[in-house]
């Protein structure tokens, strides 16, 4: 589905992504992990053609990214950004309907089908009752659900999520990932940049760890979610226990390391 070869991205002179090679097959649910500044957001933005490549190539569905028009790409890939920055009081349903834009031609008004798709997406993310509220007057978590609904309304085969559930409460967080899992089983490919390691271990089949702009570790969750890997990537001590219900590995952090390692 997605193939990257020798992907390089720079901001000015600073190299952010330094020669990444990877493939993501159709129907995978991949967690993109790594410390702050490791290049997760940049990688997602390269995949959605927002950040230009300085080297290498990316192909989606076997077609080079440069061959896609903006609208074509938005029909294949939907992105959920880290945060929303909006100063105008659009209603939530209007925001979700923006996700239908790549499917509309010319002057494009919202058809009956667009409206149905938008409302269905809002129902899935439990945000339908926000439909008529201005997005400037709801909470961060509610806005995040509306934006996820907008991405769903794009009906794309690939979902690129950048900390999509960071603002959500625990219940909505698991509810959203249950939804992603359900969509994933129906064939949608997910790439999720996240900080919540345990959430990643619960839902992702495969984890890609970035560090200093390179892929440090890439493999199945069972193989990569280990004390050694996590400790070395995040440079802090980590213990692994098993989830009482699912048996998935869960990371426990050890406090007090700053004093004990004598860095003061």
């Amino acid at each position: 589905m997605i193939r990257a070869e020798g992907l390089i991205a720079r901001y000015g002179d600073r190299v952010v992504l330094d020669g990444l090679d990877f493939r993501i097959a159709k129907g995978e649910l991949v967690g993109l992990l790594g410390p702050n500044g490791s290049g997760k957001t940049t990688l997602l933005n390269c995949l959605s053609k927002v950040v230009p490549l300085h080297g290498g190539r990316v192909a989606v569905s076997g077609r080079d990214l440069s061959e896609y028009s903006s609208a074509e790409l938005a029909r294949v890939e939907a992105s959920v950004p880290q945060q929303l920055d909006i100063s105008f009081p659009f209603t939530c349903i209007e925001v979700v309907l923006m996700g239908r834009y790549p499917h509309q031609q010319g002057f494009g008004t919202d058809s009956e089908e667009d409206l149905d798709t938008a409302m269905e997406s809002m129902r899935l993310t439990d945000s339908l009752d926000l439909a008529k509220r201005p997005i400037t007057e709801i909470s961060g978590g509610e806005a995040q659900r509306v934006i996820i609904a907008r991405a769903l309304a794009q009906r794309a085969q690939v979902m690129l999520l950048d900390e999509a559930t960071a603002n959500l409460d625990v219940a909505h967080k698991t509810e959203m990932f249950d939804l992603f899992l359900e969509k994933n089983r129906q064939g949608t490919t997910f790439v999720c940049a996240m900080h919540d390691l345990n959430l990643a271990a619960l839902y992702c089949q495969r984890l890609v760890f970035l560090k200093h702009g390179r892929i440090a570790v890439d493999g199945s969750t069972v193989d990569t979610f280990t004390e050694e890997t996590l400790s070395s990537i995040y440079e802090t001590e980590v213990r692994i226990i098993q989830h009482p219900d699912t048996g998935a590995p869960q990371a426990m952090f050890v406090p007090g390391q700053r004093a004990s390692s004598g860095q003061m």
């Binding site: 959605s48 903006s70 992105s79 950004p81 929303l84 209007e94 923006m98 834009y101 002057f107």
Partner: peptide
């Protein structure tokens, strides 16, 4: 319509196909 989407910022406008 594009102007509506542009108010979300350049990055999101691109990702929505504008």
């Amino acid at each position: 319509r594009e102007l509506d989407i542009l108010t979300l910022g350049e990055v999101q406008a691109r990702q929505l196909g504008v």
